[in-house]
Design a protein around this nucleic acid. Sequence first.
DNA 1: GCTGTTTTGTAACAAATGTTACATATCTTA
DNA 2: TAAGATATGTAACATTTGTTACAAAACAGC
Lengths: 211, 211
Amino acid sequence: MIREKLEHYYSYVFEKELLDEIEQVGVYKKLRENELLVDLGDQMKGVPLLLDGAIKIVREDKKGEEILLYFLERGDTCASSFASAISNGKCGIRAIAEKESEIIFLPKEKLDEWLVKYKSWRNFVIDSYNIRLNEMMETIDTLAFMRMDERLYKYLTDKAQIMRETSLNTTHQDIAYDMHTSRVVISRLLKQLENEGKIKLHRNKIEILEF
Amino acid sequence: MIREKLEHYYSYVFEKELLDEIEQVGVYKKLRENELLVDLGDQMKGVPLLLDGAIKIVREDKKGEEILLYFLERGDTCASSFASAISNGKCGIRAIAEKESEIIFLPKEKLDEWLVKYKSWRNFVIDSYNIRLNEMMETIDTLAFMRMDERLYKYLTDKAQIMRETSLNTTHQDIAYDMHTSRVVISRLLKQLENEGKIKLHRNKIEILEF
DNA sequence: GCTGTTTTGTAACAAATGTTACATATCTTA
DNA sequence: TAAGATATGTAACATTTGTTACAAAACAGC
């Protein structure tokens, strides 16, 4: 069954021999919604390959203030873990399953070995880093160039896409945590978006009418 | 002379055989102050290794609004170029020499080859990506968690360190561009920092009194 | 049903940042 | 030295974002 899912998402990415190796040494794991996958300061023993679901990557500063960096989808891996695993350093982020997810954990001993052996692995690692760098740049653009109302709308539509839903089950407070602002600000701007006809508000649920 | 500089900054990073190869295929280049090294949308034909100087990495959105991402110092390479070079993609940033700098340009044909051949090259590439990811996270922290006055003071002290000077030759307008705000805001906050005794203002020059 | 808890709505105000407008100072160069 | 050009200082005001306080609505468990 693992092989099936692997083939499904990664057969065009990895060579057959590499898929075989992954099947042998990879550890399959199912994550419950809201389960913590990586915490701040963790020393990773490997890297997760995401088979299905959605993982939220969050940054926290010394004072415990949080902000959402980006989401991982199936086919993604966590570049920050890769870093931490291969160099025995600490992880600067927190990763939480946003919904039920499935991953394969690859032991760090193999990471460098595969770089030598498999061209497809080298491409995958480099690509992953690039995707992550670009994602970070987009986050920076968002923070630097957009006003809160635009950021909020982007947050809602992005998250809906990741979750593959047109409604989000979330509270105003949760959004405020992700965007590092206050609940009152979010409520105010959500109401504004509702008046513009872009969303519809319910208790614990936001329907997105316009993408 | 190139060999000398290479040895000086990279002899502890790269194996001897790799240093030899770099000397053979690398193209040395001197950059004048303010010279453009990489522009938005460029398709990189290789990656620059920074031997000396300081390179400013800037992000620009569609509307032409800019913000400083980070600086490169000697020993650094541009992860974003690496990305662009190896995958024939476009570069999402702009790189400008902040002062006279020296680089060695490595042709993209070698990049993947060396990943297979040299452990030290693999480490260097992975490390570079990690350093850049961390730098980006710090930029995000700064944007998300700090007020403008704190950001400004951090900008001044960071830049002074990169430039290895205690005074910066710059105008309020230039700082405003880097921080994506208006000149008036910067002038106001600089005056405030001066009143707090942390800096001293001159025309075209800011002296930093407290680090 | 009733009661406590969670979530949302909103007003009133405070603080931070952005904008416009203009004055003054300093440098450059003819 | 006079005449622009560039850089800085500052006031007054606008907008955006954050904070406090409280009320009302929706839900959960009994």
